[in-house]
Computed example of a mutant assay.
Amino acid sequence: MIYVIATTQVKPEGREAFIKGHKECIAETRKEKGCVSYEGHTSIHDPNLYVVVERWETRDDLNAHGKAPHMKVWREYAAPYRASPTVIEIISDGKVEKF
């Protein structure tokens, strides 16, 4: 099992549009092969910190997700709403990878 935690600091004025747009991405991602779960959340401590929690059956499934057409659309849509680059952590077997 592969776990992913992706955090994005969102511009306050773009927060609602970012979250609304991500709902479409969530719906498409949940249809992907190997997607066990994929959810978006807002931090209770910082309303402009958006956290995506994902679970994938294999690393290959996760890699395919990153190349999915809807992810390209999502990245382009979300770019103007980000206050900083998304930080992604991949967790498997107790090891953490950052990229």
Rank of each mutant, 00 (worst) to 15 (best):
P12K: 12
Y77K: 04
K67S: 11
I2L: 15
V4G: 08
A27W: 05
Y81I: 04
I88L: 14
I44R: 03
E39V: 07
D60C: 05
R55G: 03
S84M: 10
G14L: 14
S43C: 10
A83Q: 15
T29A: 13
P80G: 04
P80H: 04
I26F: 10
K95Q: 09
E16I: 00
T58P: 01
P12F: 15
G40Y: 02
Y77W: 07
S84D: 10
H45R: 07
Y3E: 12
E97W: 02
K72G: 05
V51W: 14
S37I: 00
E97R: 03
I19D: 00
K31S: 02
K11Y: 13
E16N: 00
K98W: 09
K23C: 10
P12T: 12
A79V: 02
A17C: 04
K67P: 06
V10D: 14
E76V: 06
I19E: 03
L49H: 07
G14F: 12
P47F: 01
I88E: 02
G21S: 03
T42A: 08
D61P: 00
K23D: 11
W56E: 04
A64M: 03
E16M: 00
K95D: 09
K98D: 07
P85A: 05
A79E: 11
G21W: 13
D46I: 01
D60L: 10
A79C: 00
E32N: 06
S84E: 07
V10E: 15
T42F: 05
I90W: 01
T29Y: 11
C35V: 14
P47T: 09
M1A: 01
A64N: 10
H65K: 04
I90V: 15
R82N: 12
C35Q: 09
P85K: 05
H65F: 07
E28W: 03
R59T: 14
G40R: 01
E57H: 12
N48Y: 08
M71F: 13
V87H: 01
E76A: 08
N48E: 14
H70D: 11
K20A: 06
A83R: 02
Q9R: 11
G21V: 10
R30V: 04
P80R: 04
C35L: 09
K20D: 02
T42I: 15
I26V: 15
S43G: 12
S37N: 07
Y38R: 10
V4M: 12
Y3G: 10
H41G: 01
A78W: 14
M71I: 15
R82F: 08
G14M: 11
T42S: 09
